[in-house]
Design a binder for these strands. Structure first.
Lengths: 202, 202, 202, 202
DNA sequence: GATGAATGAGTTTTCATTCAT
DNA sequence: AATGAATGAAAACTCATTCAT
C-alpha cells in the first residue's frame, strides 16, 4: 500500500501495468491486430494514459524488446557463470532459455512472432542482442575447445545459428502444441542432439 | 501469344501477376504495411481486379502459402528421390531448401517473416506443411538408421525441429546480411554440423 | 446531365462541391473549429472522399487560396484594363474588389479571417498575391502621375498598404454589420476619400 | 519583495506570468496550435495552475484582449490629450498606435492575427473597443472641422475604417518584413497621406 | 494555492472493400 | 472481365480539463 503510493512506484506500476497488458494483448492477437484501446482496457487505464508512458504504439513493442532482452540476457549470463566446464555451461544456457520462455508464455509468443518483423526493419536492439548471444556462445565454445570437449574445427558462427534456430523452433513448436508437455523437458534432449549430432559414431 | 488470349490463361496470368506483385510488396514492407492499392499498382491492374481473383487481402497470403508450399515441397521430394542413401538425401534436402530460398529472395522474406503470424492463428496450411516435412525427414532418418549411418536412438521429432530451426535461422541470417555470401554455400557446413554435432569424437 | 456524366466534369464537380462546402463551413465556424466530417456532410460525400481530392485538411484551404486568388486577381486586371485614365482605373479596381467580396460572402469571410494566419506562416501564395497587387497599383499610380492627377511625391508602397488596409477594413466592417447596406455602395466614397484625403483644400 | 509575498500580489504575479507566456506562445504558433501545456511550461507553472486564474484556454485570449485593449486605449487617449489642435492629435494618435505595437511585437502579432477570429464570433470586447476608437476619431475630426483643417463633408465612419485599416496594414506589413525598419518611421508619412490624399491639389 | 497524472471525447486520416459503369 | 471512385468503419493520437494529493 504505502509503497505503492509513493510517486515513483506509482509511475512505475502504471508503466508496468501497460506493458504487461500490451504483451498479453499482442500475444493473443498479434501486434497489428491489437488496438491501443484494447491495451488500455486490459491495463485498466484510459487510452490517453498510454501516451504518457509511451511515445506511440510502436514504442510499446520497443520497450518490451529493450526490457525483456536485457532481463532475459542477464539471466542467461548468470546461468552460464553458474557452471564451470563448457558443456555444463551450454546445457545450462539451453535449459535457462527454455525455462524463461516457459515461465512467460505471452512474452514468448510476442518474442517469437514479432522479432522477425523487427529484424527486417534492421532494428538495432535486435542486432545487439544477436551479437551478445554470439559472444556468449563463442566464449563457451572456445572454452570447450580448450577443454577438449568441443571439436576445434567447429564453425562457431554457424553453430550459433543452428543453436538459436533450434531453440527457437523448439519453443515455437511448444507454443502451438496446446501445452501438452513442459518446454524444459526438451532441454537435455536438445543439448544432447547438438553435442552428438545425428550421425552414428564410428 | 494466342494462348494468352483465351480467357482461362488470361485469368491465370492475372492471378499470377497479382500474386507475384503481392510477394514483392509484402517482402519490401511487410504484410500489414502493404496496401491492396500498392499490390494492384505493382501488378498493373485496378484495385477492384484483385477481388476477382482473391477473396480479400488475407486470401492473397493464403494462396501464396498454398502455392509456394506445394511447389517448394514437391521440389524437395524430387530432390530427395534423386539420391540413394540417407545422408545424400539429407544433404540434398538441405541444399535444395537453401537454393530455393536463395533463388527467390522476396518469397524468402515473406515466408520467413509472415509464417510465424499464421502459425499463431493455427493456420491449417502451415500445419500440413509442417507435417509433410516431418514425414519427409522421418523417412530419411529411418532409412539412415537401417543403413547404420544415423544413430538408432535419435529423437526424430526433435531432430526435425532442430533441422528446420537451423535452416530457418541460416536463411534469416543470410537475408539480413546484405547479400555478402551465397546462401547455398552454407549447405555443406550445415549438413556436416547436424551430422557430427559439436562434440569431440571419442 | 450528359455533361455531368463525363469523367472529367464529374471529378471536377466533386472537387468543386467539396471546396464550396469547405468554404461555407469554414466561414461559419472558422477553419480550426470546422471538422473534415462537417465539410464532408455539407458536400454530400463520405469523409474519405475528401482525401481523394485533397491531401489533408490544410490542403483544402491552400487550394481555396490558390484558386480564389488567381480568379479574383485576374478579374481585377480585366477591370483595370477596362478604363483609360488612372483615376477611373483606381475607381474600377476598388469597386470590383468590393463587388467580388459582396458576391460571395462565405469566400469573403474565409479570406478576411484566415489570410492573416497564413501570412504569419509566410505562405508563399499570399506573398505573391500581395506583390501582384502592388504591381497593379504601382502602374496605375505612375500613369496617374504622368496624367497629372496623382501627386508625384506619393510614396507608392505606403499608398498600396493604405488602400489594401482600407478596403480590407471596409469589407470586414460590412461583413459584421448584419448586411444592412451594400458593400459596393462604399466604393465611390472610399475612392474619393483616398484621392482627396481628409484635409481641407487650401 | 515583501509585497510580492502577500497572497494577492503573488496571485497577481502568477496571473501576469501566465498572460505574458500565453502571448509569447500564441504569437509564435498561433492560438489553435498552442497548447495549454506549452503556455504552462513557458510560464513556469503547472498545467492545472492555469485554471486557477483563467476559466479555460479561450479565457486567456479574452483577458489578453480586455487587458491590452484597455491599456493601449487609455494610452491613446492620453496621447490625444497631449496635443491641442486636431491635426496634432491625429498625428499623435497614429504615432502612438504604431509605437505601442512596435514596443511589443508578440502582442502585435497576436492582436493582428487573432482579432479577426474573434470579430467573427461577434466578440463584445472587440466591438466595444471599435466603438471607443470611433468616438476618439470622431471627436478629433469634429474638432478639426471646427478648426477648418478637416473638410466638413468627410464621412467620419468611413474615415475611421480607412484609418484603422491603413494602420493595421502598415503594422502587418512591418511584422512580416523581418524588422528592416522602424514601425514608427511610418507614422508621419501615413499621417500625411491620410490628410492630403493621393490626388494632385488643384 | 499548486501540482501534474489521468482522463476520454473528439479529430484526422487510412484503406479494405464494393459496385455502377 | 475490368475498372477505380466512393465508401465509412476503424484506428492512432491529442489535448483541454479535472481532481486527488
Amino acid at each position: 500500500m504505502s509503497e505503492n503510493n509513493n510517486p515513483d512506484s506509482r509511475k512505475n506500476s502504471k508503466y508496468q501495468q501497460i506493458l504487461q497488458a500490451a504483451i498479453k494483448i499482442f500475444a493473443r492477437q498479434g501486434y497489428y491486430k491489437s488496438t491501443v484501446s484494447q491495451v488500455a482496457r486490459e491495463a485498466g487505464v484510459a487510452d490517453g494514459t498510454i501516451y504518457l508512458y509511451f511515445k506511440n504504439k510502436d514504442d510499446i513493442l520497443d520497450h518490451f524488446f529493450s526490457y525483456k532482452t536485457r532481463e532475459v540476457f542477464s539471466c542467461f549470463q548468470q546461468e552460464v557463470r553458474r557452471a564451470d566446464n563448457a558443456l555444463d555451461k551450454l546445457r545450462n544456457l539451453i535449459r535457462r532459455h527454455l525455462l524463461e520462455f516457459e515461465n512467460d508464455r505471452d512474452m514468448a509468443v510476442v518474442y517469437q512472432v514479432e522479432t522477425r518483423m523487427r529484424r527486417r526493419l534492421s532494428d538495432i536492439k535486435i542486432k545487439e542482442m544477436s551479437d551478445m548471444y554470439f559472444d556468449l556462445v563463442s566464449s563457451i565454445v572456445r572454452q570447450g575447445q580448450q577443454e577438449g570437449v568441443i571439436r576445434p574445427d567447429l564453425p562457431i558462427a554457424l553453430f550459433k545459428q543452428v543453436m538459436i534456430g533450434a531453440i527457437d523452433e523448439v519453443i515455437t513448436t511448444w507454443l502451438y502444441s496446446s501445452g501438452k508437455y513442459r518446454l524444459t523437458s526438451m532441454a537435455d534432449p536438445l543439448f544432447e542432439l547438438l553435442i552428438r549430432g545425428v550421425g552414428e559414431k564410428n
